[in-house]
Simulated scan of single mutants.
Amino acid sequence: MAERSEEVKLLGMWASPFSRRVEIALTLKGVPYEFSEQDIANKSPLLLQSNPVHKKIPVLLHSGKPISESLVILEYIDDTWQNNPILPQDPYDRATARFWGRFVDEQIYVTAMKVVGKVGEEKDAAVEATRDLLKLLEKELVGKKFLGGERLGFVDIVATLVAFWLMRTEEVVGVKVVPVEMFPEIHRWVKNLLDVDVIKKCIPPEDEHLNYIRARMDRLKLKSV
Rank of each mutant, 00 (worst) to 15 (best):
R94E: 10
K65D: 00
F99S: 07
V110Q: 13
A112R: 10
W100T: 10
S68W: 01
G64D: 01
I67Q: 02
E69H: 07
P88G: 12
L87T: 05
V59P: 00
M113C: 14
A112M: 15
P85D: 05
D105A: 03
D79S: 15
L74H: 07
N83W: 10
A95F: 10
Q107N: 13
A97H: 06
E106D: 15
P66I: 01
I73T: 06
S68G: 12
L60D: 04
I67C: 03
W100C: 11
Y109K: 08
D105N: 12
F103T: 04
G64A: 01
A112G: 08
W81V: 04
A95H: 09
Q82P: 09
R98E: 11
E106N: 13
H62M: 08
N83R: 08
I86W: 02
N84K: 14
D90V: 09
I108A: 10
P66F: 00
P66K: 00
A97R: 05
I73A: 05
I86S: 12
R94Q: 12
A112S: 15
L61G: 02
D79I: 02
R98Q: 08
T80R: 06
I67T: 10
Q107H: 14
I73Q: 00
G64S: 04
I86H: 07
K114S: 14
F103Q: 01
V59Y: 01
D78C: 03
I73D: 02
F99E: 06
I108G: 09
L61P: 02
L60I: 07
D78S: 02
P66E: 03
D78W: 00
G101V: 07
K114N: 14
A112N: 14
L60A: 04
M113F: 13
D105I: 03
V72P: 03
V110C: 09
N83G: 13
L61Q: 04
L71H: 03
D79G: 12
A95Q: 10
L61N: 01
A112L: 08
Y109W: 10
P91A: 14
P85V: 12
E106T: 12
A97V: 12
E75L: 11
P85I: 07
S70F: 02
M113Y: 06
W100Q: 13
V59N: 04
P85H: 00
S70E: 09
T111H: 11
R94K: 15
L60E: 08
L71T: 03
I67R: 01
P85W: 01
E106I: 08
Q89N: 10
A97P: 09
P88E: 14
V115R: 14
D93W: 00
V110I: 15
Y92D: 11
F99V: 05
L74K: 03
A95G: 11
T96K: 14
P58K: 03
E106Y: 05
F103P: 02
Q107W: 05
R98W: 02
D90F: 09
Q89V: 10
G64K: 00
I86Q: 11
P66A: 07
L71C: 04
P66L: 05
L60H: 04
F103H: 06
H62P: 08
V115I: 15
V110D: 14
K114A: 15
R94V: 11
K114R: 15
V72W: 05
H62I: 06
S63N: 11
Q89Y: 00
